[in-house]
């Protein structure tokens, strides 16, 4: 439909619509998305994978791995695979030495909203785990369709509830010896996302993010 036709159609429809009840709300100006709520983000590098990442890693890193990560169950290589060596991964490496803002995590989901991180373009935090159990915080995503990399220490399991992970937590391909993981995730809608840091993490956990443009 060309622009003139579109506008004339709009005008005609607007005139016809005067006084009409409109039952749907499809014209809302937020993006309607199929938020993935399955929550089965199997995040975290397995401890037993250090010596098993040699052959498959390059194959896994150059393409989207969202669909095939769950299918590649013949071995555990993917869970400990090396992520891409790209600009985003490099940003994670650069954050290793950056000043980290401390954040004491909540001790339950009920406390998650007391510990809030607003997702800036890049940021680094030192997450302080509760005395026992999982740690909880809320990640505020201030824009729709945000694609973000989350970096943390290898072996630390972080679950971004209601986010849509493109990849598992892979070894950061830009600095594979630094001991940090790189997970690429999509946040389809803006808003507040609950994040769980699994019990068993160190007392303080290094955590960084980098948003893709």
């Amino acid at each position: 439909m060309d622009r003139t036709t579109l506008l004339l159609t709009s005008l005609l429809s607007l005139s016809l619509a005067c006084g009409e009840e409109k039952s749907d709300d499809d014209d809302d100006d937020t993006v309607e998305t199929d938020t993935d709520t399955d929550g089965d983000t199997d995040i975290g590098a397995d401890d037993d994978t250090d010596d098993d990442t040699d052959d498959d890693t390059d194959d896994d890193t150059d393409d989207d791995t969202d669909d095939d990560t769950d299918d590649d169950t013949d071995d555990d290589t993917d869970a400990a695979g090396v992520g891409p060596d790209d600009a985003w991964a490099a940003m994670g490496c650069e954050q290793v030495g950056a000043a980290a803002e401390p954040l004491v995590l909540g001790a339950s989901t009920a406390e998650s909203n007391t510990a809030v991180i607003v997702a800036a373009d890049v940021g680094t935090w030192s997450l302080v785990m509760p005395a026992s159990g999982d740690g909880w915080f809320t990640l505020e995503i201030p824009a729709w369709m945000t694609v973000m990399h989350a970096f943390t220490e290898q072996g630390v399991e972080i679950e971004f509830i209601d986010a849509d992970p493109f990849t598992e937590a892979l070894i950061n391909g830009a600095c594979p010896d630094a001991g940090i993981s790189d997970q690429r995730l999509a946040f389809h809608e803006w808003g507040a996302y609950t994040v769980r840091v699994a019990e068993g993490a160190p007392e303080t956990v290094w955590f960084a993010i980098a948003k893709e443009e």
Binding site: M1, S10, L12, S13, A17, E20, E21, D28, D29
Partner: peptide
């Protein structure tokens, strides 16, 4: 209707006539 946005969404030609 009066509480909905009058502006068209960004998606190309969603058929949202009247916006």
């Amino acid at each position: 209707p009066f509480l909905q946005t009058p502006w068209c969404p960004d998606e190309p030609d969603t058929g949202d006539a009247g916006c």
